[in-house]
Design a protein around this nucleic acid. Structure first.
Lengths: 195, 195
DNA sequence: CCCGTATCTAGTCATTGACAAGTTCTGAGT
DNA sequence: ACTCAGAACTTGTCAATGACTAGATACGGG
């Protein structure tokens, strides 16, 4: 990709997005440099700006893409637990997207594409608890489930549970976690001594 | 703080840390600039570097401070649920610390102070599930509880549950979430239709 | 074939992080 | 009280970056 015979790159937008994902996954969003991405794509230093306006624009495009992928990943899940598993799988398979999606400070919050994609993903999340309305507060139930999946995914990506998960498949581990929770093994309100 | 009669600032380290917390809470870690912090403290542009080596050093110091504060906040909680509530409270009251603590890419992972503080906080987290060993896998139970609290805290700080929480106290809302979970209101494995 | 426009290049400026070298102050030891 | 080693801070500098502007090139509809 370093040399290029034609004046036009052909698919610079996708090339930059792909390179950005690599950089973010490896070194985080802070290490992202438009000029570096331009070099990787073999174009001049200002070329990426034409597609994304600025750094924030690029990150916003990535986040929107991420929400779209998440919506796809969650679609047609058989039940709530499986939806959680897919949420975790998404985070593991798309760590760069996931990171950017949940750092509002990096994004243009009012971007139309971002809002639309976010709404699609949000609808999928809500669909996961749509059938639980009569057993309690569906919205709260959804937030509880989302918190569990999101927290596990985040801790996973920040290397805070690597020891416990070990060689096990993270998705499988998460499945067992949900089993643990809903079987009542965790007496959250039970008193206990300070060790 | 803009003018200063003495050659030495007196407490530049603390001044820079405090200013950094303001910036991060308002605009995220990416907006952090050592030179800007120097200006706010009324010192020359290179003064902060003497205390923190570089940008990563500053962020690492903040993260270490954060883990110390978290360990304090969790200490002597009466039960697991209350420990979760305090975890959420910590995130709400120290959003800048919380953000930095869970972005490994920003930190020097092998920093001794960071590791020590992290270990203290980790010990407090483990203590929360120390009494549950006979009811199941204590480590997994701990990770489940941590995931729930961490996920809710993260979603809260990223403005992803503001609508649901509304005017309610986030801590109180989280308390009710744990109640929902452990009362078996959430049939995670129950089949359900696609809406 | 022509021209409007999308795509990309080249040049520039202010800002930043990092480093080096020099200056001012503090305080421990005698 | 004196010295001096080192901590705290300043000044100067360099390469890299984001953002902007103006201009060159190529594509595609009419």
């Amino acid at each position: 990709m370093t040399s290029r015979s034609t004046y036009h790159h052909g698919d610079l937008r996708q090339a930059v997005l792909a390179a950005a994902l690599d950089v973010i996954a490896a070194e985080g969003p802070g290490a992202l440099s438009l000029r570096d991405l331009a070099r990787r794509a073999g174009v001049s230093h200002a070329a990426p700006a034409h597609h994304f306006k600025d750094r924030t624009g690029l990150l916003t495009a990535l986040a929107a893409e991420g929400y779209g992928l998440l919506a796809e990943a969650l679609a047609a899940a058989p039940d709530l637990r499986e939806r959680g598993v897919r949420y975790v799988r998404f985070a593991v398979e798309h760590p760069a997207h996931f990171q950017v999606m949940f750092q509002p400070a990096l994004l243009r919050a009012d971007d139309p594409d971002l809002l639309a994609a976010k709404e699609r993903a949000s609808a999928e999340l809500r669909a996961g608890v749509a059938g639980l309305t009569d057993t309690g507060d569906a919205r709260s139930a959804g937030i509880a489930a989302w918190s569990l999946a999101h927290g596990f995914a985040t801790l996973l990506l920040t290397h805070n549970v690597t020891g416990a998960v070990g060689d096990r498949d993270p998705e499988e581990y998460f499945r067992s976690l949900t089993g643990l929770l809903f079987s009542g093994q965790l007496p959250a309100s039970g008193r206990q001594e300070r060790e």
